[in-house]
Design a binder for these strands. Structure first.
Lengths: 337, 337
DNA sequence: CTGTTAGCGCTTTCAC
DNA sequence: GTGAAAGCGCTAACAG
């Protein structure tokens, strides 16, 4: 639109050389205080704004961290985005968010866009990029990945996966302890590692208590509400004896909850229901939903700090994510029959 | 980390001059096809990625659109972010998201950060920046604002506010038509234009039906779930005769719903409940919540297209947002007593 | 402490 | 059609 004020103009206005202005801006060397005052006044007067890119061109740093998320409107990943934002706050780095929509092609495309913008580091949240590509990226810049088991440490990167399997196991054990035996499972997207891990945890728990695994008690969903509703209908039709259902995430649990409401089946009196992810809304469903909280905000914060430490050479202690069972009111005791 | 491949290296590899490579990349002039092939091979071989900033420095465009949102994890604004992302897709522009957290200071700060990054245009979602500042910004670059009544057209900007007042009026009229007379209202943040507009719509509807406005039927909330829960408790205590409650947004309606659940008050048999915003989860509450859908995704899309049209000189038809009453099951008929 | 000089990687005249 | 040269706005040696 309108030509922007340049550092040279500030220098002229203040009667000093461009380098002096630059020194004041970057704090790279001491400057006589009277000149500094003049310069600051000139900056104010012209309302000068340094051009980040021009600076980046010479320093070799764009001051931005690329963040590949899957869906900018996903309630799950957005917690991590908040954490990343907080982690980068005051560091001089800005996050550059882009969505991959769980499509490998999209993800590769946006990673290219981020690299063209010379992001100084990359944070990857979920997605289906091959491990190989991530490894390759890690050779080029600091990379921090969430959601897969992958060793990036050789290249100075990191990958952190929450132990979904273990948490799912605990959750199902909790149901078993309360007397439930016929426990349905609505699974998430089959191609999704978290869905697989949660199913594995479900099986672990059954095995631990010597309950035979019944394949028809598991129905396929896609992590979205409608699939939870349909999944619950299927389970109800096939297994009237069922007393509890474990949904692979909260969104499907919401759908399942509605299916029950429609049929007048009470939660938890008639059927117990548990989810996974502990979305913000889950504490306010009726009844509040028992779920597993994943510390995504903290994780995002830590991922940001991790790449920052790679960038600035600082130290950083390891992050030990604590998955936490949120025991609420959607699970009831089953009287021994 | 690792030095990046430059255009000059590509030129050398292909045995042509840098300008030729540039011409091929930008398509600014015809080039003999054999050279083009050589260059493309060199690009492939070196896996060259053009430096967006270096280009921007000379073209005077960063290829990015700044987006000031309030909370990167807000379910409400995120729909708009999705729309913006979609609107920018394939345009060569990338969104640069930053959060203002409803704090004027934060908002001003991030706007500065965006301007330093030489965003080519700015989209502002909500927030509490003074109109004056927005006007000032609009003189510098294309600006598109959501959530306030403000005329930016003199500077080629735009501002679009959904008619919350009218929608709230219709929603409350709907309750009145179903026989409700004692209707509570849990208000959103008092300093928030939308909250004020929705309260005004509530009053409009009452007046239209000659129902006196009872101040104590309105309690203060802050748009978050806990305030809905508390607000409902207050209303219940003060107005046992109340048969319906209008919450200024869905999140507060969720909180209110839980307060009712705790007391065994049935929805909609004993009390009707309506919200505003139609969050994704609202179709899956029990019962599904009657609310007002705001076309945020479409709005975001249009805002993106608007700034794009300013940037590229294209034409764009006006956006006529349709607020839509989502009539679901949380409202019941009141028998005439 | 401060000014001069030389680029960072790219596009864009301007000649040929 | 194509190359040489001149910057875009800034920082980082290099001298003083």
């Amino acid at each position: 639109m309108q030509r922007q004020v340049t550092l040279a103009e500030v220098a002229r206005e203040a009667g000093v050389s461009p380098s002096t202005v630059s020194r004041i801006l970057t704090g790279s060397a001491r400057v006589r205080s009277d000149k500094e005052i003049q310069v600051r006044q000139a900056i104010e007067k012209l309302s000068y704004r340094p051009n980040t890119f021009a600076r980046g061109l010479v320093t070799g740093s764009s001051g931005s961290v690329g963040v590949l998320t899957q869906d900018i409107a996903s309630p799950f990943y957005n917690d991590a985005l908040s954490g990343i934002e907080r982690g980068l706050l005051g560091s001089g780095y800005m996050p550059l968010f882009a969505s991959g929509h769980w499509r490998q092609g999209d993800e590769e495309h946006v990673v290219q866009l981020l690299l063209r913008r010379r992001v100084d580091a990359l944070i990857v949240l979920g997605g289906c990029l091959p491990d190989q590509e991530l490894l390759q990226l890690a050779t080029q810049l600091p990379v921090a990945v969430q959601g897969r088991a992958l060793d990036l440490s050789a290249h100075g990167g990191t990958s952190i996966a929450l132990n979904n399997r273990e948490a799912a196991r605990e959750l199902v054990l909790y149901l078993l302890e309360r007397g439930h035996r016929a426990i349905g499972h609505i699974m998430g997207r089959a191609d999704h590692g978290d869905a697989q891990a949660r199913l594995a945890g479900y099986k672990d728990a059954l095995q631990e208590k010597d309950i035979p695994f019944v394949p028809s008690l598991v129905v396929q969903g896609d992590f979205l509400e409608p699939s939870g509703l349909i999944g619950m209908q299927q389970l109800l039709a096939a297994h009237p004896e069922m007393t509890a259902v474990f949904c692979s995430n909260d969104q499907m649990a919401y759908g399942a909850r509605l299916a029950l409401y429609r049929r007048g089946i009470r939660v938890p009196e008639d059927l117990s229901l548990v989810g996974f992810d502990d979305l913000p809304g889950s504490a306010y469903t009726t009844p509040p939903l028992t779920s597993v909280r994943q510390p995504m905000e903290e994780l995002g914060f830590w991922l940001a700090r991790f790449v920052l430490s790679r960038l600035t050479g600082g130290e950083l202690e390891a992050f030990v994510p604590q998955l936490e069972l949120k025991l609420r009111e959607s699970v009831g005791f089953l009287r021994r029959s």
